[in-house]
Every structure is written in C-alpha cells, then in structure tokens.
Amino acid sequence: MTHPTDPTTAPGQDESTVPGRRDFLGMVTTAGTVTGLAACAIPFVESLKPQDSAAAHQPVEVDLSKLAPGQQMTTVWQGKPVFILRRTPEELARLQNAALNETLRDAQSEALQQPPYARNWHRSVVPEYGVYVGICTHLGCVPAYMPPTPAPDQTGFYACPCHGSHFDLAGRVLKGAPAPYNLPVPPYVMPTPTTLRLGENPKGETFDFSTIEQI
C-alpha cells in the first residue's frame, strides 16, 4: 500500500513516507478479512471437486455361460459400454490371417490400447473371448456389432455409425477409417472359464486403465 505524497509537506518527512498506525491497522484488518473469506471459501470450492465414487471402481462380474459362439453382449463398467464377444474358431483363424492384417492400421497392437497381458494376436486373455470398451477412438460414438453374414468368406466386424470407422473382431481399426487407435481393452480377469471380472488385473499384473492412449 502506498501512501499518497502530500505536496504541502517537505519530502523526506516521516509522516509522508512511513505508513501510519491507522494504515497498518487498516492493512491488518484487510488481510484478516481476506484470509477469513478465503478460509470460508474452502468448503464451497471443495464441494466442486469431481466425485470419484468408490462404488464405480468396484470390479464388475459378468456371467458368460449364456453367451453362444458368434454372439456379443454389452455390459457397463465405470459408466462405459463394454463389448464381450465370443469368437468362433473360423473367426479366430481369420484374425491370424497375415493378408488381412495388412489392411489394419495397428495389427500388432503397438499403441497402448490394451493391458500388456492382452497384447497378442487375439487382444485378450483367452482367445475365445474378446473384451473391448465400446467407444470409438475417433469421436466417442458406440460402434455397432455386425454379425457375420451367411455368404462364405464374410466375417463380422464393428462399424461406427458416426463416421464409418471399422474395427475387426479383435477391436483393431481398419486402414482408411477416421479412428486413429484400436478399441481399448479394459483390465479384466477370468476367475472361471465362464465368468469375467472387469476392472481387476490378473495376479502379478499391474495395469492402470487411465494410462491408455485414448478412449
């Protein structure tokens, strides 16, 4: 706080340069009031903090016993749609087809879009089941599962309704699509062959889903 110089007093005089007692009291009062107001603002600001509810982070258990080969189901984990797909042996064979892999943007799953234990040709823990977070990596729409058509050589795929991105049955994005990354694979374990627990890593593995490239 600067004290305005009084033109009637000679420069260098104490009264004009040294803040008076009243100024000091004024400053102390102002400082006290500001501190008090700032302290009072704490609960208001605190309440605006995003709430990560503990319940949303609990693992979600899914029963797969009713899922037939070639079928896909959608479940919800942390508010996101999760696709669980039971692939047929023909479809699994197709995933390993080197010629078809040429049409994929990231056939080897190099981008961190899956836990390390799912970085393999089938992008899953068990080849039979594919598990993906069903959010297109382009602009966040939910891709639709297109089951295989009866005509020979036709395979199922995922098609995003918004901008036409296509993903194969391992969630890998096809070249020429606007989506830049493969569909994310969430952390999960399979405690029994027909149950799946989303949000939990297999023993000895650590993977934080929030570290992936992009949802």
Binding site: I42, P43, F44, V45, E46, S47, K49, Q51, S53
Partner: peptide, 12 residues
C-alpha cells in the same frame, strides 16, 4: 457423508 466439504455446507 460423501461430498467434499458437504457436511460443512449443510451444517452452515
């Protein structure tokens, strides 16, 4: 119980 500072806001 859950909202940060919520007990104080409601208490006030």
């Amino acid at each position: 119980r859950q909202l940060s500072g919520g007990w104080l806001l409601r208490g006030m």
